[in-house]
Simulated assay, not measured.
Amino acid sequence: MVEENPGSPHVDGLSVLLVDDHPMFLDGLRGALLPQEGFHVVGEASTAEQAVTLHARLAPHVVVLDLGLPDANGTEVIRRLLDDRPQTRVLVLSMSDDDNNVLAAMQAGACGYLVKGADRTQIINGVRTAAAGGAVFSPQIAERLRCFFNALAAVPGQQAFPQLTPRELEILDLIARGLDYRQIARRLTISDKTVRNHVTNVFAKLHVTDRAQAVIRARNAGLGGDSSAFPS
């Protein structure tokens, strides 16, 4: 479904583009936002391509985006939207509260992450906060992010390898500890293939060609020891 609502894009107030492939949820979200003074739902989309097209045409202040779209990964959609118009504020509203999805969305440029099930007030305040330039998270996600970054701050390799994502740094640390790919996958509850993809990225970013070279770089930076304590 693609819908451009009357009055866009030249409207006063806060313009919002809604992106979700569940019509009933979209109806509920629209119903929550429309009665609010100063809110204008300028368009609605149910696929990534529709979202990108409407975003380019309508230039909304805020995009409320579900990550689970049928035709593209949600984080890739965030990147495409912000590549086209960096000033847009993207607020994720998703069924998933998986740490990997949250971090990937933040790295792609989202300004907030709410879990579906958030009440009407949280969503309204979230959109307002996003439009005002703030960051907004569901309470449970905010607490987990706090714990995650507190733990990450204690990892010595963070300063040595700023080019690595938190997940890549975590995997490099486990490699330096001597874990093989299957053990890493089991520990992090991800697939062997995902581990290998991350390792490929790590090798490319560190300009090394094999595991032994990566281990040397990691241990020289202080990874792989008892002090590098990622959460198990």
Rank of each mutant, 00 (worst) to 15 (best):
V90W: 08
L91W: 05
L91H: 03
V92F: 05
V92Q: 04
L93Y: 15
M95S: 09
D98L: 15
D98W: 07
D99I: 13
N101Q: 13
N101P: 01
V102Q: 00
V102G: 02
L103G: 00
A105S: 15
M106D: 06
Q107S: 12
A108S: 13
A108L: 09
A108V: 09
A108F: 08
A110K: 05
Y113N: 02
G117V: 10
R120T: 13
R120H: 13
R120L: 11
R120D: 13
T121H: 12
T121L: 11
Q122E: 14
I123A: 07
G126V: 05
A131H: 07
A132K: 15
A132N: 15
G133C: 06
G133I: 06
G134N: 11
A135E: 12
A135D: 04
V136N: 02
F137H: 03
S138K: 04
S138I: 06
S138P: 00
P139C: 05
E143M: 14
L145N: 04
L145T: 07
F149N: 11
N150M: 14
N150S: 14
Q158W: 10
Q159E: 14
Q159T: 14
Q163P: 00
L164S: 01
R167L: 11
R167P: 00
E168S: 07
E168P: 01
E168Y: 06
D173L: 03
L174A: 11
A176M: 07
R177V: 05
G178F: 05
D180I: 11
Q183D: 04
Q183N: 02
I184M: 03
R186F: 06
T189Q: 15
I190W: 08
K193N: 12
T194G: 08
R196E: 12
R196N: 03
R196W: 05
N197E: 13
N197G: 08
V199G: 00
V199Y: 05
T200A: 13
F203A: 11
T209E: 13
T209P: 01
D210L: 09
D210F: 08
